[in-house]
Simulated scan of single mutants.
Amino acid sequence: MSHALSLPYEPLATWGRSLVAWLGGKGVAGGAVLLATWTAYRLVPLLLRSLPLPETEGELTRQAVRAKTLRNVSESALKVAVVTVGGLLFLSNLGLNVTALLAGAGVAGLAVSFAAQNLIRDFIHGFFILLEDQYGVGDIVKVGDLAGVVEKFNLRLTVLRDLEGKAHFIPNSQIQQVTVFTQEWSRAVVDVGVAYKEDVDRVLAIFRDEAERFFQDPEWQDKLTNPPEVLGVENLADSAVVIRTLFGTKPAQQWAVAREFRRRIKKRLDQEGVEIPFPHRTLYFGEPLRVVKETP
């Protein structure tokens, strides 16, 4: 390399000597800054994940949801801070005036803000979602036509994972209305139809008895919060009398409770000889053709 720099080619020789001088001085320090920035960037999620979360024993509590959400937001904010500080130190090491650069960036930021209004809205909406604890990581929500588990949340976007495993990335500014299925407590609503010929009072007694047995089952008591309510006849449908039963459950347990009660009440109605109707279809082909013979 020294032989190449000794060649009388200008300005290449001068540039080469300047480059060697810079690499021997500021270049090493700049490389160290970049290495430290990259290391800190990689350590941020590892350090945050090592922090203990509230003990929930598998339950979806607000404390656990809040802790996971704050950890996600903190990870994003710390990564941005690490990259920003590392970038400023690297530029300062190059000999640039960082103070003047920041002042210029502030002026340029006003111009950029007009082009990044949606991004600013995302951060503002995300801040209020976090502040009001509307939902968090682990909650099951519905946003518009999309529903799923909140897999990731930061101030810019929300990531939903639906039942089919699809990930949906939704900017926070587009979330105008959200339905949360796991906020503090949940409820299972079970509608079951019986035939019109059945005695309604007897059917209601069977439902109350089976719901009480379900509530007293030790295997399911930790998922239920309140005694079940058999509201009675909810609807007189085309082919069935619909009976509605309510179960107060812990967050995210309403679907498992509803499936189990449907299984139990189906078996119980079969034992009691109560018919669960299903639609019947009668095909009509019209009157049969009659052949009329004409006599000569």
Rank of each mutant, 00 (worst) to 15 (best):
S2R: 12
H3Q: 15
S6Y: 02
P8Q: 10
P11W: 07
A13L: 09
T14G: 12
G16S: 11
L19E: 03
W22D: 10
K26G: 09
G27R: 10
V28M: 15
V28L: 14
V28H: 13
A29N: 14
G31M: 14
A32L: 15
A32H: 06
A40Y: 10
L43C: 11
V44C: 13
L46D: 00
L48N: 13
R49P: 03
P52L: 05
T61L: 05
Q63M: 12
V65M: 10
A67E: 12
L70Y: 14
R71L: 08
V73L: 01
V73F: 04
E75F: 04
S76V: 12
A77P: 09
K79V: 09
V82T: 08
G87R: 03
G87V: 07
F90S: 12
S92Y: 10
G95S: 03
T99K: 13
L101V: 10
G104F: 08
A105Y: 11
A105Q: 13
G106T: 08
A108Y: 07
S113M: 02
L119M: 02
R121S: 13
D122N: 15
F123G: 06
I124N: 02
F127D: 05
F127W: 03
L130E: 00
Y135F: 08
Y135P: 00
V137R: 12
G138P: 03
D145E: 08
D145N: 01
G148W: 12
V149D: 06
N154E: 09
R156Y: 03
L163R: 00
G165W: 04
A167H: 10
I170Y: 00
S173K: 08
Q176F: 00
Q177A: 10
V178L: 01
T179V: 13
T179H: 07
V180G: 09
Q183S: 13
S186Q: 03
S186H: 02
R187I: 01
R187S: 02
A188E: 02
A188G: 01
A188H: 02
V190L: 04
D191I: 01
V194C: 01
V200G: 05
R202M: 13
R202Y: 05
A205D: 15
Q216F: 12
E219R: 09
K223P: 01
P227I: 13
N235W: 06
A237L: 08
D238E: 15
D238A: 15
D238L: 13
A240E: 06
V241Q: 00
T245R: 03
L246K: 08
T249D: 00
P251I: 01
R259F: 00
K267C: 00
D270G: 00
I276L: 10
P277I: 07
P279F: 00
F285A: 14
F285V: 11
F285C: 09
E287C: 06
E287V: 14
P288Q: 05
R290Q: 06
R290K: 09
V292P: 10
V292G: 13
